[in-house]
């Protein structure tokens, strides 16, 4: 009997724990969306900020611009690095490089931002700029992309590689024609996660990307760029209710974008599992 009661008590406690995970998540989403609900309007999305008021056009376009820069810089490095770790690297070297990459993932984001600030913004004289911000984000997310690419390739059965070798294909061709297409969905999920991380970062951007009230341009250095997370943290500290509204709206927009990215990730992995079922992997 005592054992039965202990069983019930423990599982109830775990149930409470689960509630403590789910409730804050719901409260954050509902709370932030409700706070910002009053200020949703087309002007919010299509006018730039001016002073402590205005809209978020410069901020969300800046965020998209940084995400695009990230994709251009981080995706090739991460995917190529992941291919190397999974397919080429000798056991020992791959282990060292993997360890280095995991270590980088553990470096606090503010430290990455601080170093990029010292080197690119100050030393190289780029001043606050899209490229400096993009580089800071790139350094942060490469480990994620590399890890997911490597894991995706490792999931492809070895006999496909052997088949490639048996046909006399050079490794690069096997990788390009056989392994990459099969690993692609998981690699793409990794890229989506990387984009979600980059979208939500603030600390590495404050002293690298700066902030700007105007729209992002093709000029990548010597010109600061706006982004959504900056609005949240700066404007909430302003003593004006307009500024607070803008901070809530930016936070809500970030959550909506996050939900879209999570949805995209799920869509890709759902398609991936259909694909894998078809090929009996």
């Amino acid at each position: 009997m005592r054992r039965r009661i202990l069983d019930i008590v423990m599982w109830s406690l775990f149930g409470v724990a689960l509630a403590l995970v789910v409730l804050p998540a719901i409260d954050i989403i509902v709370g932030i969306l409700a706070q910002s609900a009053g200020s949703w309007s087309p002007e919010l999305l299509f006018t730039p900020t001016s002073g402590v008021a205005g809209g978020l056009l410069n901020a969300w376009t800046g965020t998209l611009m940084l995400m695009a820069l990230l994709l251009i810089m981080a995706a090739p490095i991460g995917v190529l690095g992941g291919i190397y770790l999974a397919e080429f690297g000798s056991q020992r070297l791959a282990q060292i490089l993997r360890f280095g990459s995991e270590t980088l993932a553990g470096v606090p984001s503010i430290i990455v931002g601080y170093v990029i600030y010292l080197v690119f913004v100050v030393k190289f004289g780029w001043s606050f700029s899209a490229l400096a911000g993009g580089i800071a984000l790139t350094i942060m997310v490469i480990p994620y992309i590399m890890r997911s690419t490597e894991a995706a390739l490792r999931q492809v059965p070895t006999n496909l590689r052997e088949g490639g070798t048996a046909l006399g294909l050079p490794p690069s061709l096997t990788i390009r024609r056989v392994l990459l297409p099969m690993a692609l969905p998981n690699i793409m999920t990794g890229l989506v996660v990387a984009e979600a991380i980059a979208m939500g970062e603030t600390a590495p951007l404050i002293y690298t990307a700066g902030w700007s009230n105007s729209l992002p341009t093709a000029q990548l250095i010597h010109q600061p760029i706006g982004y959504l997370t900056y609005v949240v943290w700066t404007y909430i500290n302003q003593p004006f209710s307009q500024a607070h509204q803008l901070a809530y709206s930016a936070a809500a927009l970030l959550l909506v974008l996050l939900l879209l990215l999570i949805g995209l990730g799920r869509l890709i992995s759902a398609r991936a599992s259909r694909f894998n079922d078809r090929f009996q992997v």
Binding site: P24, A196, M199, G200, T202, V232, A251, L258
Partner: peptide, 8 residues
């Protein structure tokens, strides 16, 4: 929870 930005 893993994806919510830290400023939020």
């Amino acid at each position: 929870l893993a994806g919510i930005p830290s400023v939020v």
